[in-house]
Design a protein around this nucleic acid. Sequence first.
DNA 1: CCGAATCCTGTCCGATACTG
DNA 2: CAGTATCGGACAGGATTCGG
Lengths: 216, 216
Amino acid sequence: MERKRSYDDGCAFAQALDLVGERWALLVVRELMFGARRFSDLKRTLPGIATNVLSQRLAGLEDAGIVQQVDLPRPARGRAYALTPWGLAFREPLRVMGAWASRNPRLAFDHPLSAAAAMLSLGSMFDAGKARGLAVAVDMRFPEGEFRVVVREGELSVEAGACGTADATVTGDQNAVLAVLYGGAAPEDVGLGVEGDEAALGRLAGAFGAPVPLVR
Amino acid sequence: MERKRSYDDGCAFAQALDLVGERWALLVVRELMFGARRFSDLKRTLPGIATNVLSQRLAGLEDAGIVQQVDLPRPARGRAYALTPWGLAFREPLRVMGAWASRNPRLAFDHPLSAAAAMLSLGSMFDAGKARGLAVAVDMRFPEGEFRVVVREGELSVEAGACGTADATVTGDQNAVLAVLYGGAAPEDVGLGVEGDEAALGRLAGAFGAPVPLVR
DNA sequence: CCGAATCCTGTCCGATACTG
DNA sequence: CAGTATCGGACAGGATTCGG
């Protein structure tokens, strides 16, 4: 009675879809990519997910060895969900699929997105060629948390937690940051606060390429 | 009434899941990765898919601009389904997700897999470091079709269609080829016929690394 | 409050039968 | 050969309730 639905396919990719192919599963993984989150954090940053579905996905991902429950460290108390090393390794597929997705000819830009989604999109849109010779560090403070974005030696690094020694610090919401970095908007026009070297934000924007839709 | 279910998420990745996140959708894309296939070809190489589901997926993928209907060329007649340029660009996400999937600690090797799945897995398992200095071309003849696998200058190329000038030609089924390339099996032990330079197959096997499971 | 478990309803999936 | 029609069952979505 308890048989899980499976493709029964020897292809590793298909077997992965048995684990992460259910609705919402990969978005849960996405939200966990920058560290442990509580059930209610996930519920909040995944608008539209039902509590029972979130429960089932977390249980399934835990059973698959992609997610594990952890005791929340310092300030907060209680349990939370975090990725296992294998789950964390999904960051690369997420980046590559995001890069493919950004070439969607009908991509919609008007919907809100979570801070984790915005920070991961940086990896998908990063263009190492454009970043040649660039060195810049920007801290980003969102309602959901803080992130540090660093470009150095043609490589991009995006990690949770700011450290205060960046060239600039932006405060606001993630949609505003993407409007500045990808859309060339002025920070003040989108309600983004900038401290420090405001020009650093412009240099950072130069590291990202516009997606090239592949029309039929 | 006809609203398609959507995550309503600004994240490009989530929007891609709106298009290819339904059950079977990505496996259909996988099967089309080496050229146009008819409805009945897809039905046969995707054991377990229902005809109505295949219909719905093809229609959805066509509407999304990932698949297009084509008139079948020369020998055969009738219509078939092929990837658009954007759909073809999914080969890279497929490769990277396959590489991630191959590190599944519970990966099952005993299920059969389609020729397309087997040929795509080569890309996921290829190790450019191990292929340094290697130059080999092998034609593979499967019941489902012929493929040419070439390693040269540290790069792997897998394309549909053999051309007869390879170092070796193998004839049999795709599971047998993978058993030889990944599992070190002897061709004669798995029912694989080899013509030409049999040692070329051994050299080719050296270009693929065993997956490293990431245990928790 | 957090983290679920439990309804109930609607949609989607899977299997088979059937038609142009 | 290439799908459409149909129907039971599984799964998702939403609200409510319940235990730490």
